[in-house]
């Protein structure tokens, strides 16, 4: 499984990754709009650099979770998790319910609000380029090696190595964090800051919250059906017996 590792300590905030992404996907320039969030991501910016105090720069992008909430939420399967790692989107299936935007714990997917035929927009980990054997445009463009591309296991090992070297660093995206993500971070700042104060480390994968309920659906369906039929039969039978009893009494009387 392919993966990206971003090292916050090495990022200089030059925005080359953002520009490379925009060039690759021919994304039009972004203007300030009413519906933007302050993190810089939008339907036209699939990755962005968030500037934190003390000159820390955090590249924000889709985390490409191992067990993505958006994929499990999408009612038509427009979002899928590929074997290579990327979570990709098929606009031809999408009906625009925006449940993925609600479900994503990182609040990554963005919407074309100004379009009459809007689509969900987010980083797709350059799926086409990966399939061709190339690396994503952003990692290719990074001048300092702050964000690198590779196999997930190798990058995870590399991240752990860096953490051993520098105990101040924290690792984000391993299996402890909602089942693991394909975009890993090594950071000396708390990434809560770019996720609305949410720290997802230590939490279970989100599809597991709805899965048991949805698994019980067929049983509930049949159960309610049987219960209602039984109830009807019982009450009907009781009424019939009562009627028969009455008529019997009459006949006897």
């Amino acid at each position: 499984m392919k993966s990206i590792l971003t090292d916050i300590t090495k990022c200089i905030g030059c925005n080359e990754c953002v520009l490379a992404c925009k060039r690759t996907y021919d994304l039009p320039p972004e203007l300030p709009r009413r519906w933007h969030k302050p993190d810089g991501l939008s339907a036209r910016n699939w990755t962005s650099i968030v500037r934190l105090p003390e000159n820390k720069f955090v590249r924000k992008q889709c985390r490409h979770c191992q067990e993505p909430a958006c994929v499990s939420a999408c009612p038509v399967g427009a979002l899928i998790k590929n074997a290579e790692g990327p979570v990709t989107y098929d606009g031809g299936k999408c009906m625009g319910c925006r449940y993925c935007m609600m479900a994503c714990p990182y609040e990554i997917p963005r919407y074309d609000w100004d379009s009459a035929a809007p689509y969900i927009r987010k980083c797709i980990l350059c799926y086409e380029r990966i399939k061709e054997g190339k690396q994503p445009a952003c990692t290719e463009a990074c001048p300092t090696g702050a964000t690198i591309f590779g196999e997930r296991e190798e990058l995870l090992a590399e991240a752990k190595r860096r953490r051993q070297e520098n105990p101040k660093l924290q690792l984000y995206g391993d299996e402890n964090e909602i089942g693991g993500t394909c975009v890993l971070y090594v950071s000396d700042v708390d990434l809560k800051a770019i996720y609305n104060g949410r720290d997802l480390r230590g939490d279970p994968a989100l599809p597991s919250t709805t899965a048991p309920v949805l698994a019980s659906v067929p049983l509930t369906f049949v159960g309610v059906g049987v219960l209602m039929s039984g109830l009807y039969w019982t009450i009907n039978r009781r009424e019939q017996l009562k009627k028969e009893g009455e008529s019997g009494e009459k006949a006897n009387g």
């Binding site: 994929v71 499990s72 939420a73 999408c74 009612p75 038509v76 399967g77 427009a78 299936k93 999408c94 009906m95 625009g96 319910c97 925006r98 449940y99 919407y111 074309d112 035929a117 809007p118 689509y119 599809p207 709805t210 899965a211 309920v213 949805l214």
Partner: peptide, 20 residues
Amino acid sequence: LGLPWHIWHPTIYWQHHSAL
């Protein structure tokens, strides 16, 4: 819905992990 003319899509594209 953003793409209301796709409202019928759940009938052909099945994704039974989704509550929606």
